[in-house]
Amino acid sequence: MNISLLAAASIGTGVMMLVAAVAALVVKKLISAIIIVGFVSLSASVLFLLMDAPDVAITEASIGAAISTVIFLWGRGKIGGEE
């Protein structure tokens, strides 16, 4: 019972992650792409937890949620202009 729920969760998260990854590359504004990459990192953290890797999940959450977002936002602010 549990394993089929976990399977459903992993398939759903995986589909959302792939759609978000494609969307991050085709979406027009760079700031939207950065926000969507934040979501990809969140789903990666969920998948790591589903793969019984809590250490990796915690690291991915702590790095992907705030730190890498800020790095990209800073770069976007420095370059300026749209694509």
Partner: peptide, 29 residues
């Protein structure tokens, strides 16, 4: 909920980290 299904309280740390740091990410945006 996943931690609950696995039945291990250690996995709650992940949710705790995420709830704290996602706030920071949204605040940065």
């Amino acid at each position: 909920l996943v931690a609950f299904l696995q039945g291990r309280s250690l996995l709650l740390d992940v949710a705790l980290v995420y709830s704290v740091l996602s706030f920071l990410g949204v605040l940065a945006i």
